[in-house]
């Protein structure tokens, strides 16, 4: 089955998003990839919290839980061990990172305590600061008025402190996977979808009046069809990539049937929508801890490792 291997093709990619197509693959592979990305890609997250002082309005457990959910830059997660596999007794620099937070509100104004006030002992693992917000962005071309002013990312809000309130704590970040707790999941969203194939029956379409053609083309909520008033034809936009298989076009065809030729079932077949066999588009949205491309790479490695583990067991134990 050598020639039968699946292929991957990156459609679009930036730091936090990636979209790629997986072709010649079974849905089980796409789903395995999705499941592994959600729950088995290792990242770093705060796991233990020692609270020295807390006079804020939130109780200790509440603060600890919020700390756990703060995304930490996990690009160097490969350099760390899992604590349970580490050779140390309880914990060491090879398997954990200590972060500190120490803040007292002195002034009259309420102060927001955020993740950017967490001081990390180790430069390799620090709270994520969004780069998109730090960088001024241009929208709608080069018009200078549209330049969004530079906004500093102030980090994730942990708690608000009033005058005299204090929060002082020590947090230990560890390596883990989303299966143990969702705070270790590197993604906010992963999805895979089938690739639509939209074919218009142009012979049948020619039987329609111009106004009906236009009305039919407009029936699609995802704007997959376009009526061209010059050629007087309905065409499919971008191979129907936007199609969501909602069948509104078929329902519209049925409506046209009841009006134009009642009792018949003709215009319901104006369009044939199928999904391409063995092809999936996977979209991954990182929550900032890892670049999206690294997540996919890591997930593929995890799947391979899972399979090889069973394989090694087979070769070792029997035969």
């Amino acid at each position: 089955m050598a020639s039968n291997h699946p292929t991957i093709e990156i459609v679009e990619v930036d730091k936090d998003h990636i979209k790629f197509s997986l072709s010649n693959a079974d849905s089980s592979l796409a789903n395995a990839l999705r499941r592994v990305i959600i729950s088995e890609v290792p990242t770093m997250a705060i796991d233990l919290v020692e609270i020295h002082a807390n006079s804020s309005v939130l109780h200790d457990e509440f603060v600890a839980h919020r700390l756990g959910l703060i995304p930490l830059d996990s690009t160097n997660v490969g350099q760390f061990n899992y604590t349970r596999e580490c050779s140390c007794n309880r914990r060491c620099a090879l398997c954990s990172v200590e972060l500190r937070l120490d803040f007292k509100c002195e002034g009259e104004q309420t102060v927001n305590v955020t993740s950017s006030m967490l001081y990390s002992e180790d430069d390799r693992v620090v709270p994520v600061v969004s780069q998109d917000m730090a960088r001024p962005t241009r929208q709608n071309g080069d018009d200078d008025d549209d330049v969004v002013p530079e906004v500093e990312d102030t980090g994730v809000l942990i708690v608000k402190l009033q005058e005299g309130q204090k929060l002082s704590l020590r947090a230990i970040a560890k390596k883990g996977v989303g299966k143990e707790h969702a705070k270790w999941s590197p993604v906010s969203c992963v999805e895979f979808q089938e690739v639509p194939e939209v074919v218009i029956n142009q012979d049948l379409m020619a039987e329609l009046e111009e106004a009906d053609k236009e009305e039919w083309a407009a029936s699609c909520p995802s704007k997959v069809f376009r009526y061209d008033p010059v050629s007087r034809q309905v065409e499919v936009v971008e191979n129907g990539r936007a199609c969501t298989f909602c069948r509104e076009c078929t329902l519209k065809g049925e409506l046209l049937d009841t009006r134009i030729n009642p009792g018949e079932d003709r215009f319901a077949k104006l369009v044939r929508i199928t999904s391409k066999p063995k092809e999936y588009i996977i979209t991954v949205e990182s929550c900032g801890t890892l670049p999206a491309a690294d997540i996919v790479q890591s997930a593929l490695a995890v799947i391979k490792e899972k399979l090889s583990n069973v394989q090694a067991e087979m070769n070792g134990a029997w035969q």
Binding site: A2, H5, T7, I8, L300
Partner: peptide, 17 residues
């Protein structure tokens, strides 16, 4: 078969990236 498939995917992905 699966290990080989995933290895191929890994390789192509790395190359494209």
């Amino acid at each position: 078969d699966l290990v080989q498939s995933v290895a191929v995917l890994e390789e192509t992905f790395k190359e494209q990236m």
